[in-house]
């Protein structure tokens, strides 16, 4: 129906080897409470599995969280794979422990926003809503 607003669909995934996903789950619930449909794929995901799931699920956003320190490689790989799969409309954002010095590189690689630990979940939801507007 034309009059209905489209639901925002988000995939939250944890690439890398760390098995700690409390933070990711908090974000998952917060986005649900903000009215979004959130697919959670769990911990220890390969970039291939994340990109594949994002394509099959037809999401608008992929949110990545990584605490293991391998974020530069993993996040960049996800962005690249999404592009390779023709999912250009998918916006990638990230959270987790990321040194400030890595941020410019990640942004250049196509990660559109990076939320440091302690970011109020409300801010993340707000950013997603704003980003969804001009998609």
């Amino acid at each position: 129906m034309n009059s209905k607003k489209r639901k925002i669909r988000v995939l939250i995934a944890k690439p890398g080897l760390d098995g700690h996903d409390r933070g990711a789950k908090v974000v998952v619930r917060a986005l649900r409470d903000a009215g979004m449909e959130v697919i959670y794929t769990g911990i220890r995901q390969t970039p291939e599995a994340i990109a594949g799931a994002a394509v099959q699920e037809g999401v608008d956003f992929v949110g990545l969280s990584c605490l293991s320190g391998a974020h530069n490689h993993l996040f960049t790989k996800v962005v690249k794979l999404l592009r390779a799969k023709g999912a250009r409309g998918v916006t990638v954002f990230a959270g987790g422990i990321i040194p400030a010095s890595d941020i410019p590189g990640l942004k250049k690689a196509g990660v559109k926003a990076i939320f440091p630990p302690g970011t109020p979940t409300r801010d993340i939801a707000q950013w997603l809503r704003a980003a969804a507007k001009h998609l």
Binding site: K7, V28, R29, L31, R32, D33, A34, G35, M36, E37, V38, I39, Y40, T41, G42, Q45, T46, E48, A49, G52, A53, Q56, E57
Partner: peptide, 19 residues
């Protein structure tokens, strides 16, 4: 029913087939 949002968690159990 409150937010209109959803957590879709079934996939987590089948994710190994994604590739």
């Amino acid at each position: 029913p409150f937010s209109g949002g959803a957590v879709l968690g079934d996939r987590i159990r089948m994710q190994r087939h994604t590739a």
